[in-house]
Amino acid sequence: MTARVVYVDDEAMLCRAFRLLMRRTSVEVETFTDPALALAYLCSHDATVIFCDYRMPRMNGLQLLEALPGTTPFYVVSGDLDAAQWVADNPRVSGVLPKPFLADRIAAIVQRHVAADN
């Protein structure tokens, strides 16, 4: 399976930045500003790692996680420091990244999981 990274964030600017970040990797990138669309996609497609914004209208990051099938590594990206602690405590969450995220950290995480799959 080709490595595929999914990024979910209601901020289109961040989706575009994420995509550019992944440009020179061989990883396939899918970004979604609507978590409902992201859910629909993930129910029919595999992903190597998922990054998801916590605060989104209508469905937050954890709600999306609860609805997902499978055990894909799921990283919550959050600008909300209050939420960070108890989100990190959730066993299905692989990690919490502050927002805006650092390019190096994203790259490192993607590389690790891609390597693990192979």
Binding site: E11, L14, R23, R24, K99, P100
Partner: peptide, 25 residues
């Protein structure tokens, strides 16, 4: 914070893109 973080992200990709000669990026 958001736009500032975005700037940081893009700056990070800039260096790689210039090294790779990827002018579109």
């Amino acid at each position: 914070n958001n736009p500032l973080g975005i700037v940081e992200l893009y700056v990070a990709t800039l260096e790689d893109s210039i090294d790779a000669g990827d002018m579109d990026a």
